[in-house]
Design a protein around this nucleic acid. Structure first.
Length: 430
RNA sequence: GCCCAGGUAGUGUAGCGGCCUAUCAUGCGGGCCUGUCACGCCCGCGACACGGAUUCGAAUUCCGUCCUGGGCGCCA
């Protein structure tokens, strides 16, 4: 049986490995092959005079990125990468690879993102890209573990929805038999209904769809949202939960993904310092005004320039709290003493927004009033409002963008780097 | 959606009216090489997005089309 390349150490005697031919160096009397699998790279060394001529014959014909199985004797040697190399006894080409390659897996020559995404399967073979997705996998696993450990119920809510009820963003219309339906922009309404169902703590990690024609490095038309909703909790409670989650995920990545972090030259991944500052919206726009020289009025949304300026000033993760009720969704709970402000918050990384959440309105009549004040028609989503008349507990929650979390954690320049097959304004394939 | 910048071998680039039979790197094919690790050396292969216009002459200027990147807006 083959073993992962990472498990081949200077102490190993014999090994069988399977993987891709990463690089070939023919020195004449000596052949070097670098064989790559998900876990690492191993040098296979073939001195022409010492290896079986039949093995040599196969080795001489194998093209880069072909899939091979190699058995041999492991030699401990300082000169080889990782202090060990494999002297082959047998070589089998499981599938040969065409040439030229679609892009350079060894990264001697860079490839543009567009080229990379067209040949994504091959792009992902690059150790640096593999590392990003192994870390992403670890992040998602840790979010699951973190929330399970706190008695959260994992739920799955529909992605095909009947109406554009939530407002805020454009939705993708789809044909649903003889009716029009939409792809869900967020599980918001459903996770709130789960509060009425009595689950108390729910989470979902799933796709969300936004039909915005944006063209930026931090937006996707299909993204992954980590959504949480908690009964008998307020905005402060769920902010604390979110902060704990972020710190915990960073810590776990640092502890369990050291190989991948090293591949990305991020050996010292800093865990964000806590507590994350909570700055009121008014203070945030003051900072933006001071840093940019532009003027902002209460009720203005925080645009890209302001967001950057505030992020620069803060220099770490932070929350913006006490948002104007007018620019947050109807389900955000207004402050009792000042209804112009609400119990909504955004979690910010210096580069961008990561999450937004709020204590929700749980009183039916107030919710209806707020829906009307946003110019929406309550009758259009009775399915959502009904539970509020039959014992809806007070609750709060948030939604966190998984891609943005990974992107900011690893310092990726483009959010597309954090998605296997990104969907943007112009790309549906592959 | 607006604005800007682009599309040159498989990949990444240089060239920006005639010195272009188009540069360099990588790759691929052939040759030499026993410790490479971006192996090295020699020979060769391979490209101006598409359509139109201007011009004696267009990769280079202009118009249109398609495609891409970035900034902003919108949005999370």
């Amino acid at each position: 049986m083959h073993i992962p390349i990472k498990k081949v150490t200077p102490e190993t005697e014999h090994a069988e490995i399977v993987g891709w031919v990463h690089e070939v160096r023919d020195l004449g009397g000596l052949l070097f092959f670098l064989i790559r699998d998900r876990t690492g790279i191993l040098q296979v060394t073939a001195p022409k005079k010492k290896v079986d001529p039949a093995v040599l014959e196969i080795l001489k014909t194998v093209s880069r990125e072909s899939v091979v199985r190699i058995r041999g004797k492991v030699k401990s040697i300082d000169k080889a990468p990782g202090g060990r190399e494999l002297i082959p006894n047998s070589v089998e080409i499981l599938n040969s690879c065409e040439s030229p390659l679609l892009l350079d897996v060894v990264e001697k020559v860079p490839a543009e993102l567009d080229t990379r995404l067209d040949a994504r399967f091959m792009d992902i073979r690059k150790p640096r890209v593999t590392a990003v997705f192994l870390i992403r996998s670890a992040v998602i696993r840790m979010v699951n573990e973190f929330l399970c450990a706190r008695d959260f119920v994992h739920v799955t809510t529909p992605k095909i929805v009947a109406a554009a009820t939530e407002g805020g963003t454009e939705l993708f219309p789809i044909a649903y038999f003889e009716k029009e339906a939409f792809l869900s922009q967020s599980p918001q309404l459903y996770k709130q209904m789960m509060m009425a169902a009595g689950f108390e703590k729910v989470y979902e990690i799933g796709p969300i769809f936004r039909a915005e024609e944006h063209n930026t490095t931090k937006h996707l038309n299909e993204a992954t949202s980590i959504d949480v909703e908690v009964s008998f909790a307020d905005h402060q409670d769920v902010m604390n939960l979110l902060e704990d989650l972020i710190v915990s995920v960073y810590g776990c990545v640092r502890d369990t993904c050291s190989d991948q972090l090293a591949t990305l030259s991020l050996d010292d991944l800093p865990v964000p310092p806590t507590p994350f500052p909570r700055i009121p919206y008014r203070e945030a726009i003051d900072i933006a005004a001071r840093k940019t020289g532009e003027s902002f009025s209460f009720g203005d949304d925080i645009g890209t320039v302001a967001e950057k300026a505030i992020g620069e000033e803060m220099g770490q993760h932070y929350f913006i709290v006490d948002w104007p009720t007018a620019i947050k969704p109807y389900y955000a709970m207004p402050h009792r003493e000042d209804p112009a402000l609400c119990r909504a918050f955004d979690l910010m990384h210096p580069r961008m927004e990561l999450a937004s959440g709020a204590q929700r309105v749980h009183q039916h009549d107030l919710l209806v009033e707020q829906i009307r004040s946003k110019g929406l028609v309550p009758e259009n989503f009775a399915f959502y409002l009904t539970p509020f008349r039959y014992g809806m507990p007070p609750h709060a929650g948030w939604g966190l963008g998984a891609e943005r979390l990974v992107m900011t954690m690893l310092g990726l320049n483009n959010i597309r780097e954090a998605v296997l097959f990104p969907r943007d304004r112009h790309r549906m394939v592959p």
